[in-house]
C-alpha cells in the first residue's frame, strides 16, 4: 500500500478509536482524549503498517484494553463522586454546627465541582428540589431523564439510564462475543453475556403506561368522574346571578348613604 493509502487507513482507524474514547468519563476524555488518539495512531502505524501485523488481532487487543480501562475509569469516577457526595454532606453537617473556619478554608471551585458532580450523577438541568421530589415519588432512578425507545398507543418502552452506560454495555458485549468467536468459544461467551445484558436491560428499560399531565402528575382522579368538572355557575348579570349575588351585606355602609343623597 502506498503512503497516502496508509495515512488514510490510519486516519480511519483513529476516527474509530475516537468513538471508543467517547465512552470514557468526560473528565478523563478532556484531559487525555487527544493524547490517547494520537498514541493509538502511533501504535496502529507501528503494529499494523510497519510490522505488518494482523488488523483483527490488533483491534481485538485494543477492544480488550479499552473494555478493561473503561471499567476501571468509570469505577474510579463513581468512587470519586461518592467521596464528593460524602464530603458535601459532611460540609453541610459542619455548616450546621457553625464551623465557619472550615467553610472558609474550602475553595469555592471545589464546592462548584462537587455540586456539578452530583448534578451529572442525577440529571443535568434539573433543580435539586425537583430531583428529590421525583425520587421520593417514583423511586431511585426516576430523577434521570427517560428516553422513549418504542412508543405504542397505550404503552412506551423507556430507557432510564445513561447513554454512555448503554454504549459501554454494547462494547463489552461486542468484545466478549468477538473474543469468544476468535477463541472458538462463542457458545459459552453468548451464554455468559446474554443473561448479563438481559439483566442490565431489565434493570434500565421499563414499560410504562400513559403519564398524567402536569410536572409531577395530578395523581388519581376523584371518584365519580363528572366531579372533575367544575359545576356551572350563574352569570353575574342574569336574574339567577342577581339573586345569588349578595349586595347590601357586602357593600360598605358609606356608599349606600351617598346614593340616597344624590337622588
Amino acid at each position: 500500500m502506498n503512503r497516502r493509502g496508509e495515512r488514510r487507513q490510519r486516519i480511519r482507524a483513529q476516527r474509530m478509536y475516537r468513538l471508543l474514547v467517547r465512552l470514557y468519563p468526560a473528565a478523563h476524555r478532556r484531559a487525555f482524549g487527544q493524547q490517547m488518539v494520537q498514541a493509538f495512531g502511533d501504535h496502529y502505524s507501528d503494529a499494523v503498517q510497519c510490522r505488518g501485523g494482523s488488523r483483527l488481532t490488533f483491534w481485538l487487543a485494543v477492544l480488550a484494553d479499552t473494555a478493561t480501562s473503561l471499567l476501571a475509569e468509570h469505577a474510579s469516577e463513581v468512587r470519586a463522586r461518592g467521596r464528593v457526595a460524602v464530603n458535601t454532606l459532611r460540609r453541610r453537617r459542619n455548616g450546621g454546627t457553625g464551623d465557619s473556619s472550615y467553610r472558609r478554608a474550602e475553595p469555592r471551585r471545589g464546592g462548584a465541582t462537587a455540586m456539578r458532580g452530583i448534578a451529572v450523577g442525577q440529571g443535568i438541568g434539573t433543580s435539586r428540589r425537583v430531583r428529590v421530589r421525583r425520587r421520593l415519588r417514583y423511586g431511585r432512578h426516576a430523577s434521570r431523564k427517560a428516553r422513549v425507545v418504542i412508543r405504542a398507543r397505550h404503552h412506551r418502552l423507556v430507557y432510564r439510564g445513561r447513554l454512555s452506560a448503554l454504549a459501554v454495555t454494547v462494547v463489552l458485549a461486542a468484545v466478549a462475543l468477538g473474543v469468544g468467536s476468535a477463541t472458538a468459544h462463542l457458545g459459552i461467551t453468548a451464554l455468559v453475556t446474554g443473561p448479563l445484558v438481559a439483566f442490565w436491560l431489565g434493570y434500565r428499560v421499563r414499560l410504562t403506561g400513559p403519564v398524567p399531565a402536569g410536572p409531577g402528575g395530578d395523581g388519581l382522579a376523584p371518584p365519580g368522574g363528572a366531579g372533575v368538572r367544575e359545576p356551572r355557575r350563574p352569570l353575574p348579570m342574569s336574574p339567577a346571578g342577581a339573586a345569588a349575588r349578595s349586595q347590601l351585606d357586602d357593600d360598605p355602609p358609606g356608599q349606600a348613604v351617598a346614593v340616597i343623597r344624590y337622588r
Binding site: 498514541a39 501504535h43 484494553d65
Partner: peptide, 24 residues
C-alpha cells in the same frame, strides 16, 4: 505516551504490552 508504551514492551522483553487505555 507511546514512547513509554514502547519502552515498557522493550523492558519486559515483549511480555507486557500496555494498551493506550491502560497507559493513560
Amino acid at each position: 505516551g507511546y514512547e513509554i508504551a514502547k519502552q515498557v514492551t522493550e523492558d519486559s522483553q515483549g511480555r507486557v504490552n500496555m494498551g493506550t487505555g491502560t497507559l493513560y
